[in-house]
Design a protein around this nucleic acid. Structure first.
Lengths: 135, 135
DNA sequence: CTGCATCCATATCGATACTG
DNA sequence: CAGTATCGATATGGATGCAG
């Protein structure tokens, strides 16, 4: 993994350019960031990391998500090759979602971010208290 | 860094619960994810990682951001202790923003995410082509 | 120079109802 | 069961103008 402390100035400049050029709609970095950002993506990925699951099972596991958002999140992930959708020709129909290898692999950097957040949660909380105290 | 492959089922369940419980407004993980998500945070952090800079210098470095959003982004980062704001009593006034140690440290996991995105950009692009081809 | 306040367009999301 | 379609509330973000 890249160490920020040893990241060259040029590397940083390059990253940055990559992040904010023209529109950004097609920037892979911007795109992943948006993915991770969106409210449900991470939760769906983590839920699927435990086991492939059917649509309604996912809905039950993530009680706060609406069908609309679950569908949309799954489609986005499918579109980007992170999630595989498999339809069983039963009656009534059932559809199973699972992580692809790509989807598995993105959980590692996301995990790093989550670890960081847990590690520094108290620092942030303290900073906010401080900020409000002055404000 | 945590290896997703060796993450215990219990760890994952815990993470997950931490991510989607009640409202989430106060969940530090959810909060960081939103931060990283928001369009400008990452760019501002990376720009400041190169050098402490004044408000307008940041604006010039990130041409697409509006004053409104730049202010807001900086305030959010300041509030969470990632960015320090220092006012110089000159005329006209000048304000310098810089990364705190906390802000420096978050660049590492963010960098991991960016590296992942660059590494797998082609996979994702291919997946999309495939997805559109079927539709 | 640094920023806040306001207005407005658009994007996002939840709720609901309906379908194969 | 697994979605799609539609509507409306809310959030988000850009543009502009003003102020210390």
């Amino acid at each position: 993994m890249r160490d920020t402390g040893t990241m060259s100035r040029l590397d940083r400049l390059k990253m940055q350019r990559e992040l904010h050029v023209a529109g950004l709609e097609n920037c892979p970095v911007r795109n992943l960031l948006d993915h991770v950002a969106s409210k449900w993506t991470t939760l769906v990925l983590m839920e699927l990391s435990q086991a492939p699951q059917r649509f309604n099972a996912l809905g039950r596991a993530l009680p706060d998500i609406s069908k609309r958002m679950l569908t949309q999140t799954l489609r986005d992930l499918e579109r980007d090759g992170m999630v595989a959708r498999r339809v069983f020709d039963t009656k009534p129909p059932s559809v199973e979602y699972s992580l692809t290898p790509l989807g598995q692999s993105v959980l590692q950097p996301i995990g790093a971010l989550i670890d960081w957040a847990n590690l520094h949660a108290e620092d942030i909380r303290a900073a906010r208290v401080q900020f409000e105290a002055l404000g």
